[in-house]
Amino acid sequence: MGQDQLERKAMESPVATGGAVAEALGELEEAKVNYMQDLQITAEFNDQNGLGISFRNLARFYQSTQDNSLISTVAETLGVTVEQVQELFANFSDGESDTVAS
């Protein structure tokens, strides 16, 4: 793993934390950007544990905001269908899923 990759991987946790902080402060657009950046980093490194955490954060964020653009953005980022994201969000909100199938 090169230096750039190590630096990008190191950003993963602080970015997710930034999403939660921004959300708590009511800065929803900033929270969305941070949560999506976290998802992109964890997907880039195929970090299954990180993907599960990112997806739980996004599912919870979607439940509170009902921002439909989030579903299409997640689908595009992961290369899956909108329907698959909707199903995964529903599973996470029901507490059924701990990991994201790729």
Rank of each mutant, 00 (worst) to 15 (best):
M1N: 08
M1F: 06
M1H: 13
M1R: 14
G2I: 09
Q3I: 14
Q3H: 15
D4H: 11
L6C: 00
L6R: 04
E7K: 08
E7P: 04
K9I: 09
K9F: 05
M11P: 01
E12W: 10
S13W: 05
S13N: 01
P14K: 07
V15R: 15
A16Q: 02
G18R: 09
G18L: 15
G18P: 12
G19T: 13
A20G: 13
A20P: 02
A20D: 03
A20V: 07
V21E: 04
V21Q: 11
A22D: 14
A22Y: 10
E23T: 04
E23Y: 08
E23A: 15
L25E: 15
G26E: 00
G26N: 00
E27T: 11
E27A: 09
E27R: 06
L28K: 11
E29V: 07
E29Y: 13
E29K: 13
E30T: 12
E30Y: 05
A31S: 04
A31M: 05
A31K: 05
K32D: 12
K32V: 14
V33P: 07
V33D: 12
N34G: 02
N34C: 03
Y35D: 04
D38M: 08
L39A: 10
Q40T: 01
Q40Y: 03
I41G: 03
I41K: 05
T42N: 07
T42F: 02
E44D: 14
E44H: 15
E44I: 10
F45G: 01
F45D: 01
F45K: 02
F45C: 00
F45Q: 00
D47A: 08
Q48S: 05
Q48L: 15
Q48V: 10
N49K: 09
N49Q: 08
N49T: 04
G50T: 05
G50I: 08
I53H: 04
F55G: 12
F55I: 11
F55D: 03
R56N: 13
R56D: 05
N57W: 09
N57Y: 12
L58C: 09
A59P: 00
A59Q: 03
A59C: 03
A59Y: 05
A59T: 00
R60H: 05
Y62C: 02
Y62H: 12
Q63L: 01
S64Q: 14
S64N: 06
T65G: 00
T65P: 04
T65C: 00
Q66M: 13
D67A: 10
D67S: 10
D67G: 07
S69H: 14
S69K: 12
S69T: 06
S72P: 01
S72Y: 09
S72G: 00
V74T: 15
V74H: 08
V74I: 07
A75I: 05
A75C: 07
A75V: 01
A75E: 04
E76R: 15
E76H: 09
T77P: 12
L78N: 01
L78F: 00
V80Q: 05
T81F: 00
T81D: 10
V82I: 00
V82N: 00
V82E: 04
V82K: 04
E83K: 14
E83G: 02
E83L: 03
V85D: 08
Q86K: 15
Q86I: 00
E87M: 09
E87N: 12
L88R: 06
L88S: 11
N91M: 12
N91H: 15
F92N: 05
F92R: 08
S93A: 02
G95T: 10
S97K: 01
D98S: 10
T99F: 06
T99P: 01
A101P: 09
A101G: 14
A101F: 13
S102C: 11
S102F: 14
